[in-house]
Write a protein that binds this DNA or RNA. Structure first.
Length: 443
RNA sequence: GUCCGAAUAGUGUAGAGGCCUAUCAUGGAGCCCUGUCGAGGCUCCGACCCGGGUUCGAAUCCCGGUUCGGGCGCCA
């Protein structure tokens, strides 16, 4: 038996002028039942919206009316009825039912409210994500995330990038720095990959020229903040015959394109979230590392020395400073000391204590980091060594540099941070369906 | 990891040693109600995180634990 007869239309597809007096079947969840005595309203919710089913006591089969009154909220139903244009009804129509098919009754009470009357805490919502997703606000976030990723794919594809995938199970640490999750790979130890970095660089040696990847990254850091996850989604690119400034332009253009696309395609979701988006102005301000240090030292009690990394407080100070000056949330920090950037960041030829690494910042947090990469094998080996790492562990990677590696550059941007900063969401877990953090491993 | 804070019906909350037989909202059960759209009215149901301690008496104070939230660190 086909289930196609359970639904002919989404609620949003019912146009009362076109479908007036016609029979339709809608399927979804019982959002609410409002029984006024002589008249009873059932609100059915599907992914696209809601429909009001109206049963007038005097005109309805008593059995059907009783069935409607007894519906348990959040049960799955399929309802067939006649579309009746009605100015008093939400969306300008209501459905006069012939048949109410109770497909799966919900248990009661619900783990949380779905109507927006009583807020639930994030932890409660994540424990019952399936119910949380039945709330308009939550769905809106994930609809927008989908459009963000679609915009990324469109933009990068249109700019000559090929979508690739790199392994998530790897033999060795990719970059040093962060801790990795060890796993068992048959009889060997392996790790979950922290970044596609080394693999996308190898693809440059392979001549793919411009690649991108959207995929999971794993970090075993025991961080405990509103903007960190142990499993995140990274959007990465790598491009040959480019320097860091070239890929910074690609990055800022991509970000503005995404904002434009979300405004165009997701106005309903933005409205549900109460967010009014402003497209960032191009080009993003370039702040040098030296200027960043000065801003922090001039505006706070903190005294940073040249060579120090920028902490959370420093990032906020610089972000607020740039925002005051430009009215923009996005900016770059460039010309970082080589020593505090990863080994693969290219030092400036004429001043090797500075690197061609950059960070792309939002007022509130770091969104992306990138660099022109070292393409010269000898230099790469000496940088690996000077960061206290063993080049032998990187042989699979270094090999690709000895047989014709073009100069190249790239970046990675955190998908969740991009979405949360765009929507003004305060906790990164809000923009992940099933977040993995220091404590949460289920659901 | 560390510092600060919190934990009360399914959900969100009030509560400052006896006023607690624990507040309110939402929810659930039931009744009334013909235009609701956070419907309204009435009745009922449902909770003090765990373990010690102080006290005549603890939801309330103290100690330990657990869990959650926030800041910082680590990191992107």
């Amino acid at each position: 038996m086909s289930l196609a007869n359970l639904r002919t239309h989404y609620t949003s597809q019912i146009n009362p002028e076109e479908l007036g007096d016609q029979k339709v079947t809608v399927a979804g969840w019982v959002h609410e039942v409002r029984d006024l005595g002589g008249i009873c309203f059932v609100v059915l919710r599907d992914r696209e919206g809601r429909a009001q089913i109206t049963l007038v006591k005097k005109k309805t089969d008593p059995e059907l009316l009783e069935k409607a009154r007894k519906l348990v909220r959040e049960s799955v139903v399929s309802i067939t009825g006649t579309v009746k244009p009605e100015a008093k009804a939400p969306n300008g129509y209501e459905l006069i039912p012939d048949e109410i098919n109770l497909i799966n009754e919900s248990a009661s009470p619900l783990p949380m409210d779905t109507t927006g009357k009583v807020e639930a805490e994030l932890d409660t919502r994540l424990d019952s994500r399936f119910i949380d997703l039945r709330r308009e606000r939550t769905t809106a976030i994930f609809r927008i995330r989908h459009e963000v990723l679609r915009a990324v794919r469109n933009f990068l594809t249109d700019n000559g990038f090929i979508e690739t995938s790199s392994p998530k199970v790897v033999a060795t640490a990719t970059e040093g720095g962060t801790s990795l999750f060890p796993i068992t790979y048959f009889d060997r130890e392996a790790f979950l990959n922290q970044s596609p970095q080394l693999f996308k660089q190898i693809l440059m040696s392979g001549g793919l020229d411009r690649v991108f990847e959207i995929g999971p990254i794993f970090r075993a850091e025991e961080h405990d903040t509103r903007r960190h996850l142990n499993e995140a989604t990274s959007i990465d690119i790598e491009a040959s015959f480019c320097d860091h400034f070239d890929v910074m332009e690609i990055l800022e253009e991509m970000v503005t394109y995404i904002y434009e696309q979300i405004i165009e395609k997701s106005s309903d979701s933005l409205a549900a979230l109460g967010v009014e988006l402003k497209v960032p102005a191009l080009p993003f301000k370039r702040v040098t590392y030296d200027e960043a240090i000065e801003i922090v030292n001039a505006n706070t009690d903190e005294m940073l020395n040249w060579g120090d990394d920028l902490g959370t407080a420093a990032e906020h100070t610089i972000g607020e400073h740039v925002f005051k000056e430009t009215g923009e949330s996005h900016y770059f920090i460039i010309d970082w000391p080589t020593e505090i950037k990863p080994f693969y960041a290219m030092p400036y030829e004429d001043n090797p204590i500075l690197s061609k690494g950059f960070d792309m910042m939002h007022r509130t947090m770091e969104l992306s980091s990138g660099a022109q990469r070292i393409h010269i094998p000898e230099l790469l080996v000496s940088r690996i060594e000077s960061q206290g790492l063993d080049p032998e562990g990187f042989e699979f990677y270094l090999k690709a540099f000895r047989y014709g590696m073009p100069p190249h550059a790239g970046w990675g941007i955190g998908c969740e941070r991009l979405v949360m900063t765009m929507l003004g969401v305060e906790n990164i877990r809000d923009v992940v369906l099933f977040p993995r953090d220091r404590r949460r491993l289920s659901p």
